[in-house]
Amino acid sequence: MFRTHGMNLAYKYCVGEGLELGASIHNSFYLSNCPNLSPSDGTSYLFERDLLDYQRYQANYIDHSGGEMAPVDLIGDFQNIPKPDASLDYLVSSHVIEHDPNTFAAFIESDRVLKNFGVFFCIFPKRIAAQEDRFRRLTTLEEMIAAHDSKLGMSDMPPETWRDHYQVFSLQSMIRVVNHLNQQRLGKWLIECVEETDSKVGNGHTIVLRKYDQLAESRWPDDESFARDFFGAWEAGRPGEALAMLKISLSFNFFDPVKLHLAGHLAKQIGDTSEAIEFLRQALIIEPENEAFRKEFFEWSGAVYANPVL
């Protein structure tokens, strides 16, 4: 049976006591102290339909791979995580959040169970990863707001589409969700880093978020005060502090090519070259004809920039 390797980015950010939502043996993260949460284990279930769903998936999985299913430690899903408030150091999820009909509720539940500074490490599929999604439009922010306002949950879903891909995301549309949650104080998500193409399997996007209870209070009231504090830290030789300031600002408005470019330079300065390249890539997505950015991208990555947005 084919098994993937681990993921360096996950090893960096997923430290301590964690939980994985929807783990699979063939795509393991190999994280210690990280039990698996699933809607059913073949005997117990969250919704009755989940038991049938598990049994069908299990039969198909064994037929095609000849392997075993990942053991299930806890019964639940993105809206029902059976853990106390502020009890986990990290949550990790790969190709699961698109199966939840209420994206905002998934983020809010994740916020609930994470400690302050805890990490939400999320990979979700590119829109061309699944054949059935390739010609579907992206789920709009307005649709996700409406699902949250109506308290949409799995009990509202018809059996014929049970735990299907309810959402289709790009990396940029997911970042807009995070920006909106933070702006509306529905979330406290510091954007640590992103991957346009995940470094796990390569058919998804990665977003790494850190719950930061003081995020809203840390936001600068205007550009002038931000610039004063940011350049003060940079000129004083504190690149880590300056980068943290940029990440706070980008967590409310990620689509600022100047700040993304600066974040790239600071990440590179402190030795996070792969994360630096991703910040620069996002700046180029916004300004694809910026020749200075393109030259730096080639110098840093050894590759000519090509727009990755699908």
Rank of each mutant, 00 (worst) to 15 (best):
S173L: 13
M154K: 06
F135T: 11
P82W: 01
R136T: 13
D73L: 04
E109T: 13
Q172I: 10
L91F: 13
I108Q: 10
D89C: 05
E142N: 14
V194A: 05
T140I: 03
T139Q: 01
E109R: 05
L114D: 06
V72D: 03
L88R: 02
L171M: 08
K188C: 14
S150K: 11
G66S: 04
L152P: 06
L186D: 12
Q184E: 10
L138D: 09
F107Q: 02
M154C: 08
M157W: 00
L88S: 00
Q183G: 11
E160V: 13
D73H: 11
I128E: 15
E132R: 10
Q167V: 06
C193I: 08
L171E: 09
D156V: 08
S110T: 07
F117P: 02
G67Y: 14
E196I: 09
T161N: 05
I75H: 03
I191H: 00
L141W: 07
F121G: 04
G76V: 14
I97L: 08
Q172Y: 10
F117M: 08
R163S: 05
G67F: 14
D164H: 09
Q79H: 15
F107G: 01
P158G: 09
R185N: 15
I175F: 12
M174E: 12
Q79I: 09
H180T: 13
T139I: 03
M174S: 12
S110I: 06
G153H: 07
P101M: 00
G76T: 15
D85N: 10
E109S: 07
P159D: 02
D77H: 08
R176S: 15
G153Y: 03
L190K: 12
T139N: 01
P158T: 13
W189H: 10
M157R: 01
P101K: 00
H99I: 04
D111V: 10
N80Y: 11
N182W: 09
K151Q: 14
